[in-house]
Design a protein around this nucleic acid. Sequence first.
RNA 1: CGGAGUGUAGCGCAGCCUGGUAGCGCAUCUGCUUUGGGAGCAGAGGGUCGGAGGUUCGAAUCCUCUCACUCCGACCA
Length: 439
Amino acid sequence: MKRSQYFLPTLKENPKEAEIVSHRYMLRAGMIKQTSAGIYAWLPMGLKVLKKIEAIVREEQNKAGAQEVLMPTIQPADLWKESGRYDAYGKEMLRIMDRGDREMLFGPTNEEMITDIFRAHVKSYKDLPKNLYHIQWKFRDEVRPRFGVMRGREFLMKDAYSFDLSPEDARISYQKMFLSYLRTFRRLGVKAIPMKADTGPIGGDLSHEFIILADTGESEVYTDKKWNDVDVTAQGLSYDDTAALETYFTEMTNIYAATDEIHDAESAPPSNELDVARGIEVGHIFYFGTKYSKAMGASVQNKDGSIVDVEMGSYGIGVSRLVGAIIEASHDDNGIIWPVEIAPFDAGLINLRSGDAACDKACEDLYQQLQDAGFDVLLDDRDARAGDKFADMDLIGLPYQIIIGPKGLEKGSAEVKNRATGETKDVALDQIVSILGNK
RNA sequence: CGGAGUGUAGCGCAGCCUGGUAGCGCAUCUGCUUUGGGAGCAGAGGGUCGGAGGUUCGAAUCCUCUCACUCCGACCA
C-alpha cells in the first residue's frame, strides 16, 4: 500500500478525550474514530489489526476442535425469558422493539441462542461432545464506557460454547479451551496468565480469567515468578490426549496467579517468589453445568435411554479489547510496537526524498520485490519531511522500517530499523528481502 | 447511578469573569526556498462559538432548559 493513497489519518497531537496510552495511540494512528460513547468505527489500519487478531483466534479455536457458526446480533426476547435472564440482565441489555411491537434485543452474549440452536438439532449422546463458537459484535450498555476499545459498549467477542454428556467430559472440553487460549495469546505476542476466577454457585475450579500484564491494567494481580519462564503453550501436546491435558492443566493451575479480589497471602508463594503487577482481562472461560440446558430443555438421550441435560461451558475472548490491550502491553514514547503476527503491515518503506528520481526508483523496485516475496509493505511515498515520516512510522509501529535516502543509495544500501529494539543497520539493497525473510 | 468537568475551524487551545459581532498553534490549499528526526518565508480557504429559549440596542460572553462527551467511584468480554 502506498501511503499517499492510504486512508490513514494520523494525528500529531493527543485528542483530549483519550487518557490511556492505547486509546491515544489508536486515535493518533488513525485506527478508530469514535461515533458515540463506547462505540467506534474502525478505519482501514485498525480494521487490519482487528482482522489479524480475529484470524489467529479463529485458527486456534479450529485447532482445538471448536466449530465456527455465526449468530445474529439481534435476538428475540423470548429466548431470554426462557432462561430467566430477560429480567435479570437489567439495563445493560439494549432492548429494541420491532415494527410489530415484538421485543428484541442486541445480544450482550449468546448462551440462550446457542442453546436454542443446539436443542433444535441434537438429541443423542452420540452427537456429543460439541463446541460451537462465533466471532460477533456484542452490545452491553455499560454505565460508564471508557478507555477506548478496552471498555466499549459495542465490542467484538469470540464466544464458544461446549456441550457434553457429563461433568467429566465437560472438564475435558474446558481443558482444551484452556490450552487453546494460552496458545492463542502467545501467538498474539502477549503473555496472558490464567487466573482463578469466581465460579459462583456451581463451585469447583473451572473458571479462569486470562490476564495480560500491562502497567495500565485495571486490576492488581499477584503471580508466581514461575510464570516468567514456564512453557504455557505445551508444545507437542495434542488436544486428543486427555490424560496429558489433565496433567498439563493441573500443572498450570498449580502455579499461583490471582487478581486482588481473590488473592490470599496465606496460599500465595513468599514475596520473593511473587510478582505484583497490573493486568487486563482479555479472556474468560467458564463451566456452568446445566444452568441453561435445564431451563431451556437442551437434553439428549443417553445410552440407557434416559434423558440427560447437557453440561455446558462458555469461553470468551475480547477480540476488539485485545487491540487496545496489546498496545498497552507493547508501546514506547514514540508509539505502538506491534508484535509481528498482528502488525498491520510487515514493514514500512520510507522514501526520504520523494521526487528524487533515484530514490523513487529504488523505493518502487524494492516495494515490488517485497510484495513479490509475500510481504505486506506500506510505502511512504508522500512529499513530506524526513522527520514527519520517521515520527509517523514510529507511531504506527510496524515491526521494520526500511529507510531509503540519497546517502544510502550512494553506497547501494538502505537502513533497516527494528521498531522494537530501535536497532538500525545498513543493508545492501539486494539483501533486504532476505533479511526480512529471517525475521 | 453518585461525584467532578468539558463543548469555540479537522486536532489542540485562548477569548467568557468585566456583553460591542471571533482569534492563536498545528493541519489543509497556492507559490518559492528547503529536505537523514514532526522546516522557513509569503499568501489563501475553513467556524450559524453543542442545541433551544430568554435578557439586551447588541450575546461565544449573562440567565433558564436541554443534548453530547470525558474523568473519579460502584459494576463489567
